[in-house]
């Protein structure tokens, strides 16, 4: 399993259409091939997204002789092109991840007198397990695989670095958590 980058399926489909009109089935295949690392799209999701785009005037339908839904070819409108450009040029908002389950677990472990280091170690083992799997996939895969897995690996590494940092400061944290009311500590983290 792979953590897929959070992104809008709609913009992805629009972007794919920029190179030329396609059938819905082709679109799904292109999407899966490029972005589907571990999570492919359902046909239903493709068609519902396309319908939304059609409604907003970002794509249009070119009908071909014959019948059946698969004979519809979708093409991007100029408004759609503008939208893709705008989306690409907009910086993604960095996500602060302040509401971390892991942090909550550590504090609760300390508050309840359990070994917080165990919590961290367990999490590290789990993270590393996942990272090993990604590394194996990366080693066998093509460049696209490597880039996507690296993306995930760097994020996991960030988590692990936080774990290390926290582990090194557990004593300090324990002092604060047990020395003060829990709410105060949480309050400090969520100002």
């Amino acid at each position: 399993m792979c953590i897929v980058a959070v992104m809008s399926v709609g913009f992805a489909l629009l972007g794919l259409l920029e190179s030329g009109p396609r059938h819905g089935y082709d679109l799904k295949r292109s999407y899966d091939q490029r972005f589907g690392q571990g999570r492919t799209l359902h046909y239903g999701q493709v068609y519902s997204t396309l319908a939304r785009l059609l409604k907003n005037g970002l794509v249009e339908v070119e009908s071909e002789p014959g019948d059946g839904p698969d004979r519809k070819r979708y093409a991007i409108t100029s408004a759609g092109v503008t939208d893709v450009a705008t989306w690409l040029s907009q910086a993604e908002r960095p996500e602060p991840y302040l509401q971390s389950t892991l942090y909550t677990k550590v504090v609760l472990a300390l508050l309840t007198g359990r070994d917080a280091a165990d919590v961290l170690d367990a999490q590290r083992a789990e993270h590393l397990r996942l990272m090993r799997e990604l590394t194996r996939r990366k080693t066998g895969g093509d460049l696209a695989d490597q880039l996507v897995c690296d993306y995930a690996l760097f994020h996991l590494e960030a988590d692990l670095r936080w774990l290390e940092l926290t582990a090194a400061r557990l004593d300090q944290l324990a002092g604060q958590v047990t020395g003060h009311a829990a709410g105060q500590v949480v309050g400090q983290v969520h100002p």
Binding site: R124, A125, L128, M131, T135, A167
Partner: peptide, 24 residues
């Protein structure tokens, strides 16, 4: 190593802290 991405090439890790080992 202290780099998790390098450690990910391992089959197993052991963590040293304060001169003690937590071996997986």
């Amino acid at each position: 190593t202290h780099e998790p991405r390098v450690a990910a090439y391992s089959g197993r890790e052991a963590v040293v802290r304060d001169g003690r080992v937590r071996e997986q």
